[in-house]
């Protein structure tokens, strides 16, 4: 019998959702039976830098890292973890993309209760500061993706190739049962004001759904529950900027004919609320621009 893999979970910067997603996974007992747990840090201070330094280089076989990187201390911790871990999984949207916390990057600096890192950055995805071997997307990662990660990474004989994303390569739309009618978009709706038709594509109905630009693998759980996809699994392979790409798609879908068609199209585009918060809900820190800039004006 081969030596069990040693596994550590560092979720100290996260909200706790990632740890919970693992706790409620139906693979938890299989995982714990198969591995040798090293630590499971859920709060800042659970595992200090001094404690991490006690481990030998590459002593931990697999480390799951949840939560964003946000200041010099968390960068230093991530670098230490990189030294002691052979393989690192960016677990959840914050480690993968910066996550919801990344929206802080759009706020004016003076309003943040957060000190920038030495190079003037705020929220960053894990891959911006250390090399990441695997990605498990989602906020929190959905059960099907966790099951796939546990099966491939911990229960399989061989490790999956570096760079594996434990999600589908196709978009959320591929897993969504709603009928796509390709009707032009003539008004933006919000699901809390008007309940959507359960059969028809949410984008067709005017709800801003990030399904077309977002990685699937979640079984389209949000659109199935009458909630538009908010893009937590990050951009499809081949899409660089998830938010910009959904805006591109939305602008293409809005369509009026007639002489004042473009004016009416722009009225609809103007009516999209909280444009960056909608299009870049999880991906500001991983977007092309990454954070708010000061452009004089």
């Amino acid at each position: 019998m081969p030596k069990p893999k040693s596994v550590a979970i560092y979720a100290a910067n996260g909200c706790g959702g990632c740890s919970q997603s693992l706790l409620v996974s139906d693979r938890l007992s299989a995982l714990l039976d198969a591995v040798h747990p090293v630590f499971w840090a859920t709060q800042p201070g659970d595992v200090t830098q001094a404690e991490i330094e006690q481990y030998d280089d590459r002593e931990i076989d697999i480390l799951l890292y949840a939560g964003p990187v946000y200041d010099d201390e968390s960068i230093a911790t991530a670098q230490l973890l990189r030294r002691v871990a052979k393989r690192i999984v960016a677990y959840g949207a914050c480690a993968h993309l910066g996550g919801l916390c990344g929206l802080a990057n759009l706020a004016p600096e003076a309003t943040l209760h957060l000190a920038p890192s030495k190079d003037g950055r705020f929220i960053q995805p894990l891959s911006a500061v250390i090399a990441v071997d695997y990605i498990l997307p989602g906020c929190p990662p959905p059960p099907a993706m966790i099951a796939r990660m546990v099966d491939e990474l911990f229960l399989g004989d061989e490790l999956p190739p570096a760079g594996t994303v434990f999600a589908a390569t196709k978009a959320v739309c591929a897993e969504c049962d709603r009928r796509h009618l390709a009707t032009p978009l003539t008004a933006i709706k919000r699901f809390h004001a008007t309940p959507p038709d359960p059969e028809v594509c949410l984008l067709d109905q005017g709800y801003i759904c990030l399904g077309p630009v977002t990685r699937g693998g979640c079984a389209a759980v949000c659109p199935r529950s009458d909630r538009p996809c908010t893009g937590c699994a990050g951009p499809l392979a081949g899409v660089h900027d998830q938010g910009g790409t959904i805006l591109h798609a939305l602008a293409s879908l809005v369509r009026f004919t007639g002489p004042d068609g473009q004016r009416r199209e722009r009225e609809v585009l103007d009516s999209i609320p909280d444009i960056a918060g909608t299009a870049y809900k999880y991906s500001v820190a991983a977007s092309a621009l990454k954070r708010r800039v000061n452009d004089g004006s």
């Binding site: 999209i272 444009i275 960056a276 299009a279 621009l289 800039v293 000061n294």
Partner: peptide, 12 residues
């Protein structure tokens, strides 16, 4: 047009 609206929120 729509992208410019988003760029404004990024401060560009």
């Amino acid at each position: 047009y729509l992208l410019k609206r988003a760029l404004k929120e990024f401060g560009l």
